[in-house]
Design a protein around this nucleic acid. Sequence first.
DNA 1: GGAGTATTCGAACGATCGGTCAAATAGTGT
DNA 2: ACACTATTTGACCGATCGTTCGAATACTCC
Lengths: 213, 213
Amino acid sequence: MDGRHARGIHTRRVTLARAVDLATVSGLDGLTLGGLAADLRLSKSGIFAHFGSKEELQLATIAFAEEIFTEHVLRPAFQMPRGKPRLLALFERWMAFSRGRVFTGGCFFSAVTAEFDAREGRVHDVVVEWRQVWMDLLQRLASEAVEEGHLPEDTDVAQLAFELNAFGRAANHDGVLTNANIHYDRALTAIRARLGESGGVSQQAREPGVDDR
Amino acid sequence: MDGRHARGIHTRRVTLARAVDLATVSGLDGLTLGGLAADLRLSKSGIFAHFGSKEELQLATIAFAEEIFTEHVLRPAFQMPRGKPRLLALFERWMAFSRGRVFTGGCFFSAVTAEFDAREGRVHDVVVEWRQVWMDLLQRLASEAVEEGHLPEDTDVAQLAFELNAFGRAANHDGVLTNANIHYDRALTAIRARLGESGGVSQQAREPGVDDR
DNA sequence: GGAGTATTCGAACGATCGGTCAAATAGTGT
DNA sequence: ACACTATTTGACCGATCGTTCGAATACTCC
């Protein structure tokens, strides 16, 4: 009744899934209608018809990546108790997400924010918006950890969010660049230390993926 | 006598200078012979003749960026005394380099390592090499700081280098993405804290550039 | 100043880019 | 089964990509 057939919806999802993965390797700008079409054994115009322009394809790809990120990282983390456990779980899930190569090129947003940081246009604007939502989330979880008494009262949550995010992104980039997993361990070590955890390596969330090095 | 004329050398340098700057905005892959030529009011084939292929242009651009980075960041930092002062100065210079927009899109290497982390080929390999040299340098300066007694004997210098580098790269990306300077301050705050500096904001190295926010 | 070479240019190549459009096909609702 | 529409296709557009090449220009050295 809404003018959409099941076939079209499926094709769109398959296309976006491939687009997200390709974008983590070649960049969101490196996406090409022709390449995507050849990869999926569809016609270029068939794919084009779903989005109407390359920019719309890029924006739809970002939205699709958000869904997957939410499913793999945010939703599981929010099943942990409010406060430090939830904050820590968020980063453990994030690192597992990148390490497990859910996307070939690691974390989609780490790649795309770096790609579009200095550009202009709608894609850049959406990326800036997403970053703000992400940083607000980190800051909120940090604040909740303070409220729960898991972190000192005088914690600068904005500063803390910056530092934790820095560790996560560095691990993602270095992990993909060198194809080694030690960077993820370094990030989690730094994150736990910054959150005042003294213990050793805890039970880590893991995605199946490349071997450790 | 070596078969090179002054005119050609100058053109090559001017071309590479523009290429480095463009690459920090549109990426090293976003560089185009035609765009570069139009920008410099030269012919496309004239520019091409200097490099022989786009890949060689990309590699030459990386080498040129190294020179500039060395001049603006490494050389000044090495004028500071061995140990913590030199290590700290390296990051202060790096942040001033990005903040001052010596290149329109901030730090060249932060952008390029993110762009090529998941790709293959000679450019990727050179980027990986560069990253290793950079991380080795950070680790060496940290080790010297330990030797000088400026850092605890049991410091994990590899872990320290990872964390400091993470702060710097995050500041660069966030600074360019949001066009705000607070991220550079956050990075320097984090770096000084991690190095055990308790004091307030010291005399910072600054490049002329965008206003603070 | 003239020989010789380094540099630059302009025209052109095939390939691919994002995008358009009319026609063919597949799916839905009655 | 039929009408209607969503989907997909293939041929094609102008622009631009990296690259080639022969000719014109600018420089250096004797």
